[in-house]
Amino acid sequence: MPTQIVNIKDQLFENIFDHAPNGVAIVGLDFRWVKVNQSLMDLLGYSEEEFYAMTFPDITHKDDVAADMELLGQLLNGAINRYQIEKRYFHKTGKVIWGLLSVSFERSPIDGAPLYFISQIVDITRQKEMIGQMNAITNIANIQNEKLKNFAHIATHDIRTHLGNLGVISGFMEEELEVLKNNENFLMLKEALSQLESTIDNLNEVRKSDFSTEERMTSLNLKDFVDSAIYNINAIARHEQCKLINEVDGTFNVMAVAVYLDSVILNLLTNAIKYSSKERQSYVHLRSLESEDYIILEVHDNGMGIDMEVHQAELFQFKKTFHNRADARGIGLFLTKNHVESMGGKITVESRVDVGTTFRVFLRKA
């Protein structure tokens, strides 16, 4: 190789070594630092003289030394040509710096004997901290999920116990009071208890299932669920003098999770009744529409309405309420949106203050 080319090559190496944005070092076979660049000094806080007085194990976390040494051995005996590992270094101040270490080595051009190692170190401390934070959050979430599972187990068990007691009491009442057998309100009470038991069964299935929402979705008749929801809240609608109009097509089937679909319809119906206007005859009109990929459940009311210019962005947020009612909790719409989206659907809203609100729930066709 001409002398001029050799000089250019050497100068190029010096420029790359000195000005590399990451730490670069030449390390002897005795593991002592032979040459370090400015980036490595900045990364670990030691001066050039301090580096040359140490070996790399001196500032390597003790738990990472063995793995590094093992790979160096493989490099020297020819088993590998290079390696890359994540390891911890001690900064001069004592803090731990995570580095992504890449190592190769230079051989003698005469006899091929190993001369020294070339190490490149990229600072990955921030990435490791973020991964640690994510793992901590995941761990907390897993603990909370386990607590929720336990709570759900206790809740469904205890509610079922009370439900059984109510069923026994209603049976006693029916036996002792013959007139109740044909009483409309008493029949509605019995049906409501039956529907509640069905809901508890569905919740129990969700609690026990380890499958994704997609795997738990089945073909469900939309009108059957609307009919059931209307029956369950019919007494509330009568009390609030709110007319319920059901024009949902009985031929439409949707892909859904039963307990989610039930919750969505009940939430929209109870909200529409709760926020009905006292200034006019109230109604809630339900109908179904068909699009290319979805069956659309439309729930329209002539109630108090929502100021969309003010509340559009926070409409489905947790604990957000839009009317001054003491019993408003801001959970129903949050759950509704989450249920709909978990089933692969979407929900839209149109509303005008003191005119009414229209929710459209897009559910996947069966």
Rank of each mutant, 00 (worst) to 15 (best):
E215H: 05
L71H: 11
A136I: 00
Y294A: 06
W98Q: 00
F318T: 00
H61F: 15
N135R: 13
T3I: 15
F322T: 07
G45M: 06
I347C: 03
I121H: 04
F17I: 13
L335G: 05
K278H: 10
V353G: 05
A256I: 08
F51H: 06
A258C: 09
K319L: 10
E309R: 13
T357M: 03
V284D: 09
S209T: 06
N135P: 02
D301S: 00
D224R: 14
M54Y: 01
P2M: 10
N37M: 14
N135F: 05
C242Q: 03
A20K: 02
L115D: 01
R329K: 15
I169H: 05
T213R: 03
E314F: 06
Y260K: 08
N234I: 07
S263I: 00
I26P: 02
S276Q: 15
I110W: 05
H285Y: 15
L43K: 01
S119D: 09
L244Q: 07
K223C: 05
V264H: 06
E50A: 11
A20P: 06
Q4S: 10
V310G: 04
T93C: 13
M173Q: 01
F56A: 02
L40I: 14
K95N: 14
I16H: 11
T161M: 11
V340L: 10
Q84Y: 04
G164S: 15
A155D: 07
Y231E: 11
A67R: 09
L187C: 03
H239L: 15
F334N: 01
T161Q: 12
M217W: 00
S277L: 02
K128V: 07
F56E: 01
M308R: 10
V248M: 06
L72W: 03
D210F: 07
N81E: 15
I230S: 05
F117R: 06
A136N: 14
D68P: 00
G303S: 13
I245M: 11
D30R: 08
H153Y: 10
I110F: 09
V6D: 11
I331P: 08
M188Y: 05
G345A: 03
M217N: 08
P109C: 13
N234C: 05
A66Q: 09
I137Q: 14
D307Q: 02
A256M: 00
T336H: 02
H339A: 07
G303R: 04
I169L: 14
K223G: 06
A53L: 00
A272H: 01
K87A: 02
G23N: 07
D18R: 15
E175N: 12
S119L: 02
E184F: 01
S209L: 04
N232S: 14
E279V: 00
H61M: 09
L163N: 13
S263H: 11
D227A: 10
D301V: 06
M188I: 07
T125A: 05
Q38Y: 09
T270W: 07
T251F: 00
F151N: 12
E49K: 12
E341L: 07
N234P: 01
Y275L: 08
Y116K: 08
F359N: 09
N253R: 14
N145R: 14
A229W: 03
S102L: 01
G305R: 01
A53C: 04
G164E: 11
